[in-house]
Design a protein around this nucleic acid. Structure first.
Lengths: 125, 125
DNA sequence: TTACCTGCAAAACCTTTGCAAGTAC
DNA sequence: GTACTTGCAAAGGTTTTGCAGGTAA
């Protein structure tokens, strides 16, 4: 656990904004001006492998990272791309959601993930 | 509607595999050997704008495209990245799902999309 | 000490774009 | 004929990687 890795983890835990790698790089530079973008990417990978952070596999373009490990749902703006936390409640309806969070909801993505039959079979270790 | 655009649309409608732009490029090259990757990207953009295909905004890395416009849920392999259609039914449970589709399900992503309060306010036209 | 990590820079990769020639309508 | 489209190649942006020096344990 190097200073770089600790700073990245702390900064990520400080915010609720699901920043991109470059945004995390800018945040970390305030504490470690010599840190490089490559180091940020490598540490985000390591921290994600260790389960200390989560890499958000949604939203198409750039990867975003989340220091909040509790199970929660995200909501993304189709205009600016920002990702916010979404307050889940049982049996919500779309009008309720719109009132709750201020977003104008246009749709949603539901995607399960796991291993397909082929990869499950090929799994040797 | 050029030959290139028609071939891309036809190929995309032929498969259930949610191919990437490069995979669509390889498929189209079988019919039009001189087609370029740039043309594929441009036509995927146009077709998506016209609502003739759907661009999948999930799965992190590369964009994937879908010729099936009916509302349906996707499932992605966390090992090889392939995206399959997912048979939605009311009130499914995880064990049922595992039996149904052959996948070993590890989790899911639920993401709403829309306009955040700031962008909604800034929307002028 | 030793394995891992860093900063830097270059490379890799996907996607977009400028341009001159070509095509659909 | 005109506006749009193409192939090609170059550029753009994000992410990964090779390397020599540095650091944590």
């Amino acid at each position: 656990m190097t200073r770089q890795r600790r700073v990245i983890l702390e900064e990520l835990r400080k915010v609720r904004s699901h920043p991109t790698a470059d945004e995390i790089y800018q945040m970390a530079r305030k504490h470690l001006p010599r840190i490089s973008l490559g180091t940020v990417y490598r540490n985000l990978e390591v921290l994600s492998d260790q389960g200390l952070i989560k890499k958000l596999d949604v939203s198409g373009d750039r990867s975003r990272f989340d220091g909040d490990l509790t199970e929660h749902v995200h909501i993304r703006c189709i205009v600016c791309g920002r990702v916010d936390d979404f307050p889940v409640r049982p049996a919500v309806t779309l009008p309720e959601i719109n009132n709750d969070c201020g977003y104008e909801i246009g749709g949603f993505v539901l995607e399960f993930s796991g291993q397909c039959p082929q990869c499950k079979k090929a799994e040797v270790c």
